[in-house]
Amino acid sequence: MNFKKKHFERRHLIELFIKTIMRIALIIVASSLGLILWTILSRGLPSLTWDMVTQIPKGGYYMGKEGGILNAIIGSIYLASGGTLIAIILSLPIALYLQAYAQDSKWGDYVRLSLDVLWGIPSIVYGAFGFALMISLGLRASLLAGIIALALVELPIMTRAMDEVIRRMPKDLEHAALALGSTKFEVALRVVTRQMLPGIITGILLAFGRGIGDAASVLFTAGYTDRIPTSLMNPTASLPLAVFFQLGSPYPEVRERGYAAALILTIIVLLVSFGSRWLASRLNKYTVK
């Protein structure tokens, strides 16, 4: 008998070939992230100035004169925060309900299916829906309308993330609390919420990150203005649209600033993403695994 490997046997060659192209595919996918970040950084950094993040557009800004896009940065933070807040108000009870009452029920399945379907609806459709509502009600583009559209975009992302994390939570803890005589509601509120905290935070930050970068939903609903909004009924600028509009400019200086705006947006999104990872891992230390 001989176990010695015959390297040139067909199946070993196939194995080697498959493994090689898989690794190449992984490298391609991973390096595309690198390429994107490098492109944005190398093109955005040269025109990134302090003025850009501290000033609102001055007269002639869109022809290459002075000013910045503080209006868009603030507007985006308002929009994403508002959208996230509304999404939390809806998501948290839904996630808790799915966990506490509808773990394996038919209704729970419907709700989860609906969330998955909502998650797949493109943001341009939410934007169009928001717009349809606005013209029906005779409203103009405003911070409020943008917040509502973003809340719809964020709701399924947030709820699914929360539900996912809670479902992975160990069940013993919950049963222990039930055995101690708590009602399901109390279990949900105390034990589950505490246990869920990493999941909730992850869900919220994930949704916030998505919300701040979404352009198609706010395009119709939030409008665009050079001023920082002072009321919910004001229209507002947003960072993704600032990028989008500046890139459409015939002036090279303005396009350059568009790249810088893209860099700012990327940095914010990456910070949120890393932040959620860091927070989740920190919080995980204090919960039973």
Binding site: M1, N2, F3, K4, K5, K6
Partner: peptide
């Protein structure tokens, strides 16, 4: 197995598992 170390570097695992 039959006097041959199946953990040798150049051993074909699939041949081992066949036997």
């Amino acid at each position: 197995v039959d006097g041959e170390n199946i953990y040798n570097k150049d051993v074909d695992v699939t041949e081992v598992r066949k036997v």
